Simulated scan of single mutants.
Amino acid sequence: MGFFDESICDCCVCPMQSVLEQLVGIPGLVILTPISTFDSVTINQVKDSIAYTSIGQLPICKITFVSISNVGNPVDIKQPIKKSKGECACCEDPMTNLVNSMKGQIVNISFLSEGFVFTETILEVGEGIVVGRFITSAGDIDVFSTCAITRISPANQQQINDPSRVSRSQRFKII
């Protein structure tokens, strides 16, 4: 599972690298970075904090989100650990604690990627990773880098039923 607990990267890069390693060879992934959306991606290899993919090489430190369609939950994540100092203690730990308390709830998640807001059921929370299910796609699993979450709020039924809310097929602006 990467090089957890060995560098400053252990709260964001290592957990995402661990997730991506588990997705090697699975076609049709959607990967978001702070400025780009990539659709129909296959990860060929993950090595040295780089994801080698069908659309080019991506630095894992810039991957904020991965969506996996119709595969159940193929992701094994490391359980959160408490940091007492450093960047993880002030950014990742508080958000992990908050999201962990919201497991099973439907929430709106905003993160460092093109202004997207997803309405998700929180399934799992791990070290640097939040796993959710997009509420209108029972088979889709979304993985967020905890360090990239910019806002999280409980979703209410009115938001969920809003006909103007974007469906999965429309939620990504594909480049």
Rank of each mutant, 00 (worst) to 15 (best):
P163I: 05
I129C: 06
I109C: 05
N100G: 14
V143L: 12
I141R: 09
M102Y: 13
C14N: 13
T96D: 05
V19T: 12
D48Y: 09
E114S: 11
K83Q: 11
N161W: 06
S69W: 03
L32V: 01
C91M: 07
M102D: 01
T136P: 01
V130N: 04
V99W: 07
V41L: 06
R133G: 10
N156K: 05
I77P: 07
S164F: 14
K83A: 07
D76I: 12
F172N: 08
S110I: 00
F144S: 01
G72H: 08
Q157E: 14
S67N: 01
P34Q: 09
S101Q: 05
V107F: 09
F116L: 12
K83E: 11
V13E: 02
S67E: 10
K103T: 09
G25Q: 03
L29R: 06
R168V: 09
T121C: 11
T37K: 01
P34G: 04
L32R: 13
L123D: 12
F118P: 00
S40N: 15
V41Y: 11
P154D: 04
D142G: 02
A89M: 09
Q79S: 14
G25L: 00
K85Q: 12
S113A: 15
V71P: 00
I135T: 12
S164E: 14
F111W: 11
I35K: 14
V24T: 12
G56A: 10
S40F: 03
D162N: 15
C88M: 06
S113P: 10
Q159L: 06
S36C: 08
C61A: 08
T33W: 10
L98S: 09
E6L: 09
P59E: 07
S7Q: 06
V24Q: 10
A155Q: 06
D140E: 13
P34S: 05
R133H: 06
G28W: 07
N156A: 02
S101C: 00
Q157D: 15
G72C: 07
I122G: 07
M1H: 13
